[in-house]
Design a protein around this nucleic acid. Sequence first.
DNA 1: GCCGTTTTCGGCCCGACTGTTTTCAGTCG
Length: 590
Amino acid sequence: MPRIASGIQNSAVAQIFDEVADLLEIQGENPFRVRAYRNAARTVRDLPEAVTDLVRRGERDLTELPSIGTDIAEKIRTIVTTGGLPLHKELCAKVPPGLLQLLRIPGLGPKRVKLLHAKLKITSAADLQTALDSGRVGKIKGFGPKTQEQMRAALGQKTMEAGPRRLLLFEAEEQAEALRRWLEDGGSFDTLTVAGSYRRRRETVGDLDFLVTSAATANVIARFTSYPGAVRVISKGEIGAAIELQNGLRADLRALEPDAYGAGLLYFTGSKAHNIELRQIAQARDLKLNEYGLFKGSRRVAGRTEAEIYEYLGLDFIPPELREARGEIALAREHRLPKLVELAEIKGDLQMHTTATDGRATLEEMAAGAQKLGYEYIAITDHSKRVSMALGFDAARLREQWAAIDKLNARTKGFTILKSIEMDILENGEMDLPDDVLAEADYVVATIHYGLNQSSEQLTHRLLAAIRHPFVDAIGHPTGRRLGRRERESYAVDFETVVRAAVESRCLLEIDGHPERMDLPDTLAAAGKRAGARFVLSTDSHAVNNLPFMKYAVDVARRAGLESRDILNTRSLAEFRRGLKRAVKSGSKR
DNA sequence: GCCGTTTTCGGCCCGACTGTTTTCAGTCG
C-alpha cells in the first residue's frame, strides 16, 4: 500500500504534466511526446474523482484511463506518493522555469522562447523587458518591430501572472448578445451562431466564436471589426476576423459557405479534443474532415449540417454540451447517447431566498416571478440561524414564514410554495435546526457555509451526517466551489463516499445554477449519475431576475448527460413529493 | 509517450493568419 502525499489535487498533478509538456517543447523535444503529456494532463484534470483515491485503492488500473499509458501511470503514482516528479525537477534544472511565463505572451511560442533564451540568455519577463528596451531583441532574426511591440504590450499588462480570466457563462452571454445585436443591426448576413465553449455551455468561456453565412462577407467582417465595444482588431482576413473586447475577451468571426455550414459549426464548436477524435475516425475511413466539410479525395461527401457529418461517420448526432471527448463518441456509435434534459421539462425551482434573510424580493414577489416562468411549484429556502450575517431563521421565525406561505397557497390555484429551509450543517456535523421543525417542512436542503477549511474527514463526516438525517432531502451546492471574482476551490470532501451515501439514503444532490456556483460541476454530476444518484436543479435566486438562472443548472445537467428521469423536479408536484426521502421514511408510499 | 477494425511499429488533426519574408516558420485555435 503506497503512502499518499496529503493534499495533492488533480489540478496539481495536471499542472505538473502541463509544465513538463511546456518544458519539453522549449527544449525542442518530439512534439508527439509533448502532446502525450498535455493529453494526460487533461485526463487527470477532468477526472471525476481524486487521483489520489484511485492510486490508494489500486483497484483500477490507471492505464485504462484515456491517454494514460504505463509510463505516465507510473509517474502519476510517483507524484501522488512523493508529491513531486523527478522528470519535472530535471527539466526545471535544465530550462529556467521563468520561461514558462513567457509562453503566455501572445505570439511567443516555444520556438521563439527557446531562441530568446539561447541568444540573449533571457530567463524571465523582467529579462525580456530589459532586452526589449536595449534593442537587443530586434537584432534577432524573426523578431521584427510588430513582434516587439506585441511583447511590450503584453508585458505591460497586469494580467501576465494570472493569465486572462475566463468569463462566467453568464457574463459571456451578455457580451455575446450585445455583439450579436450589433451585427444584426448591420444586416447583411443570413445566419449567425455563437459556437465554441459558449455553445457547449461550459461554466466559463474563454472566447466567443461567431459564425455567419452571408452573401456579403466583406460587409459583415467590416461591421464586426468596427464594433464599438472592441479595443483592438487582432486579425482581419478575407473569411474572418478577430477582435478584443473591453474586458479582455476575444471574439472571432468566421464566414462560412452554406455547403460547409455544418462542418464549420462542428469545427468551431469543438471541443478540440472531440474534433480530433472525429478526424481520426474520418482518417481511418480514408476521409478527411476539416472546417469545410468531410472529403473523400477532393469530393465533399458531407458538410451542410453537423448531423450529416456525424451520420456519414457512423455516429448519432451528438449535442454540443457532450462534445468533450469524454466517451460520447463511443456512445454515439452504439446509439446509446442520453436524451438530455431540457429547460422546458423543469417544473419547479428548489432553492431561493427572500427579504426575510438575504434576498432582495419578498415571498410574494418571488412566487409571482416563478409563476410567470410557468413553474408548478417552488421551494422558499431562506437561511437558517447559523448564517447570522443573513439574519438566518430560528424555529420561530421559520414557522412564521410557513404560516405566511400557507395563506398564500390557500389563495393560489395550480401553484404551490413548498415550506422549506436552506439549513446549515454545523461545524460539528449537527443540524442548525431541531428535528421537530425539520419534520414539518415539505423539503429541506442542507448546505455548508462555515468551517470550509476543515480536513477532508471532517467535511465528509458533516455531509454524511446530513445525507443520513431523516429530514434532509437534498444537499445544496455540494462542493462549495465558487467561480468568478470570488473564485474558490471545492471543499476537500471525499466525493465518492458522499455520492455512495446519497444513493443509499435516497438523498438528492442539488445542481445550483447560480452563475457563480454551477455546483455540482458537470464531471461530478456525471460521476454521480453513474453511481445512481438523483438530482434536483435550482437557481439559489436572491432576486426575481435571478430566477432565469435555471437555464445554467440545465446546462450543467446536460453536460453531465442527465435525462429528465435523473432529476426529481422534472416531475409534477405529487410525484416530486412521493420521490422525496421523507415520503418513503414516513411510510406515505404504503 | 500513447495507441491499435491494416498495426506492438510507425503513425500521431488541420488550416488561417501574421510577420518578416522573397517562399515560409511560428503561432494559434
